[in-house]
C-alpha cells in the first residue's frame, strides 16, 4: 500500500465535505456510460481512431474496474479511472498497434527517409522490422537495390508517412477525449 494512496484517502472523508463538493464529485464521476459516450463522440469527428472492438474493450475495462473501486472515495476513484482510460487509449495508438515499424520514432523515420532518398541502407538497430522493411534492408545489404525497387521504396515511404499521420491524429483525438472527460459534467 503506497503512502500516496494512504494520504489521499485520508484527505477524503465525504462527511467532512460541503454538499456542493459532494455533488461535484457525483457529477464528475467517470462512469462507463460517460466514457462510452465520449468515445462515440470522438469517433464521429475522428473516424477510424478506434475500432468498435477496441472501443468496447476500453468501455468494458471501465465497467469491470468500477466495482473494485467502490471503496475508494470520490477523487481517488476519479484519478484511477481517468488514469486507466488514458493509458488504454494510449495503448490503442497505431504507434504500438500496427506493423513492425511501430517502434520507430519520428526522428528515426526521418533518417530512414533521408537514407532512402540518398540510396543508402539505414541499419535500424534492435528494431523488429516488418517483412516489407526487412526486404528493403536486405536488398541494400546484398547490393541488389535496383530501379525496379523504386516503386516499393516509394510505397514504403508513403506507408510510413501515413502511419505517422495516423499516430498524430490518434494523439489529438485522445487529448480531446480526455479534456472532455476531465472537464465535462
Amino acid at each position: 500500500m503506497s503512502e500516496s494512496l494512504r494520504s489521499n484517502q485520508g484527505q477524503e472523508s465525504v462527511e467532512s465535505k460541503p454538499i456542493s463538493e459532494i455533488n461535484e464529485f457525483v457529477s464528475n464521476e467517470i462512469t462507463p456510460e460517460r466514457v462510452g459516450a465520449a468515445i462515440n463522440e470522438m469517433k464521429e469527428t475522428h473516424e477510424s481512431i478506434l475500432s468498435n472492438e477496441q472501443s468496447e474493450m476500453i468501455v468494458g475495462e471501465t465497467k469491470a474496474t468500477q466495482g473494485a473501486l467502490e471503496k475508494f472515495q470520490g477523487k481517488t476513484k476519479r484519478v484511477i479511472t481517468l488514469g486507466l482510460v488514458g493509458l488504454s487509449l494510449l495503448a490503442a495508438s497505431p504507434k504500438w498497434s500496427e506493423g513492425a515499424e511501430k517502434k520507430l520514432s519520428p526522428a528515426e523515420i526521418e533518417i530512414i527517409e533521408k537514407s532512402f532518398r540518398a540510396g543508402k541502407h539505414y541499419n535500424i538497430q534492435e528494431k523488429k522490422l516488418s517483412p516489407e522493411l526487412e526486404q528493403v534492408g536486405e536488398a541494400f545489404r546484398k547490393g541488389q537495390w535496383k530501379d525496379e525497387n523504386l516503386k516499393s521504396r516509394e510505397e514504403l515511404l508513403l506507408k510510413i508517412q501515413e502511419h505517422q499521420r495516423d499516430i498524430d491524429a490518434h494523439r489529438r483525438a485522445i487529448e480531446e477525449l480526455m479534456k472532455q472527460l476531465k472537464g465535462g459534467k
Binding site: 500516496s4 489521499n8 481517488t76 484519478v79 488514469g83 488514458g86 493509458l87 476531465k182
Partner: peptide
Amino acid sequence: SILELFDLL
C-alpha cells in the same frame, strides 16, 4: 491524468 495516477500509486 497519467501523472496523477502515478503520483497516487
